[in-house]
Amino acid sequence: MRSVWHSPVVEFDAELVETIRNGAIGLGLDHIDIVSSAGHDALLEAHRIPTAVIFTPCRNGISHNEAERIKPEQAEAGANVLVAAVRQVITE
C-alpha cells in the first residue's frame, strides 16, 4: 500500500471560530464545533489569512454531493450567522 494523497488537519482561526459560535448563540441557534475533511478553499487560505467555515445541516448529513439538500430556513440561519459574525468583526 502507498499513500497517494495526504491532507493534514488545518486549524481555523480560533478568534473567528469563536465569533461564528457567538453569532449562532446570539441568534439562539443550535451549534456544534466540527472537524471537516472537506477540501474547501478556506483550507488553502487558512495558512495566509484568518479563516473559518460555517456549515449548515443537510438532509441525512449528506454534503458535497449531488444528493445534498438543505431547507430554506437552514440556509437563512447560516446566512444570519454569517451576518452576525461579520457585524462583530467590523465593529471590533
Rank of each mutant, 00 (worst) to 15 (best):
M1E: 12
M1A: 14
M1K: 08
R2P: 02
R2H: 12
S3A: 12
V4C: 07
V4S: 10
W5I: 09
S7Y: 04
S7W: 03
P8A: 10
V10P: 00
E11W: 06
E11K: 07
F12W: 02
D13A: 06
A14I: 04
E18Y: 05
E18S: 12
E18H: 04
I20K: 01
I20L: 14
R21T: 14
N22S: 15
N22W: 05
G23C: 05
A24M: 08
A24S: 14
I25C: 02
I25E: 14
G26S: 13
L27F: 04
L27T: 03
G28P: 08
G28F: 09
G28C: 09
D30G: 13
H31I: 09
I32L: 10
I32T: 14
D33G: 12
I34C: 12
I34T: 13
V35C: 07
S36G: 06
S37E: 09
A38D: 07
A38N: 00
H40G: 07
D41N: 14
D41V: 10
L43C: 09
L43Y: 02
L44N: 13
L44Q: 12
E45Q: 07
A46P: 01
H47F: 07
H47Y: 09
R48A: 13
I49N: 04
P50M: 06
A52M: 03
F55C: 02
F55E: 06
P57S: 05
P57D: 12
I62K: 03
E68W: 09
R69T: 08
I70C: 15
K71F: 03
K71W: 03
P72T: 01
Q74N: 08
A75R: 06
A77M: 04
A77H: 02
G78C: 02
A79F: 07
L82G: 06
L82Q: 07
V83E: 01
A84Y: 01
A84Q: 10
V86H: 01
R87K: 15
R87D: 14
Q88W: 01
I90Y: 08
T91K: 13
E92V: 04
